[in-house]
Amino acid sequence: MQYVIPVGIGVLYALLMSLIREPHRRRFNAVMLAGAGAAYLSGGGLQGWEFAFAALVTYVAYRGLDSWTFIGIGWLLHTAWDIVHHIKGSPLIPFAHDSSLGCAICDPVIALWCLRGGPTLRELFRGKRPVVIQDRTA
């Protein structure tokens, strides 16, 4: 269950986010990414590196305002940071030892959804690529 529940949370996130209409869905997800980038700041397990990571994810989230690709990359960066925290023993939730591991399992699910362009439920089940509005990744 330790590995299944985080996947379910990632799927649930994508399903709920798919209910928001574009272009608001992409922008809302960019804001969510920026918030996730600052999730470890209060713990300070990696000292100054926490600020550097938060700055990096903030930049990627800013680029994500116009690009699903950047949002997906940001969630993959967060996955790597979760793994570092899990290995170091500095979890996201101090009283939940494996919280960073769970986050590291959940985040790639969200990243895959974002890298597909954040499709709606209909687009997801029909296998169609979503209609992307102004996705400027360059």
Rank of each mutant, 00 (worst) to 15 (best):
G8C: 10
T137H: 14
A138P: 10
G118Y: 01
G10Q: 09
S99Y: 11
G127D: 07
H85S: 03
A14S: 15
L41P: 02
R27D: 00
R126T: 13
V4F: 15
P23N: 07
T137N: 14
R126Q: 15
S42E: 08
W113S: 10
S99E: 08
T58K: 02
P94G: 09
L41Y: 02
R116W: 15
G72V: 00
V131E: 15
L65W: 10
L76C: 05
H78S: 13
A36Q: 09
I73C: 08
G64C: 02
A36P: 03
G64D: 03
Y59G: 01
H97G: 05
Y59P: 00
I9C: 12
E22A: 12
I110E: 01
S18Q: 08
A14C: 10
V60M: 01
T137P: 05
L124A: 15
L33N: 00
A34L: 14
L76S: 01
G102K: 09
V11G: 03
R25A: 00
V7R: 06
H86N: 08
S90F: 13
M1I: 07
G72T: 00
P130T: 02
A36N: 11
D66I: 05
M17Y: 10
R116M: 15
P130K: 04
W75I: 02
R126K: 13
T69G: 00
G89F: 07
A34Q: 04
S100C: 09
T137S: 14
R21A: 15
G8W: 06
G48P: 00
T79M: 12
T58M: 07
I83Y: 07
A80I: 13
A138G: 14
Y3E: 13
W113K: 13
H78A: 12
G102A: 14
H97E: 14
M32P: 02
L101V: 10
A54D: 03
T137F: 15
G74T: 01
L77G: 02
H86D: 09
I83T: 08
A54C: 08
M32A: 09
I9Q: 07
F51H: 07
E123K: 07
E50S: 06
I133F: 14
I105S: 06
P23S: 08
D66T: 10
I71V: 09
S90L: 13
I110H: 01
F28I: 14
R26H: 03
Y3H: 14
V109Y: 15
V57Q: 01
F70D: 12
F53D: 00
A138W: 11
V31H: 03
G48Q: 07
D82T: 05
I73W: 12
I71K: 00
D82L: 04
T69N: 01
A39F: 06
G10H: 03
V84T: 11
A34S: 12
A14Q: 05
F28V: 14
L101C: 10
Y40T: 06
L16C: 13
D66L: 13
A96V: 14
K88D: 15
P130W: 05
M32F: 04
R27V: 06
D98M: 12
A111I: 02
A34P: 04
I105N: 06
R126G: 13
D135M: 03
V7Q: 07
I20H: 03
P91V: 08
P6C: 07
L12C: 12
N29V: 02
A55Q: 04
C114Q: 09
L16Y: 12
R21F: 10
V11N: 06
A38H: 06
L56V: 11
A38D: 03
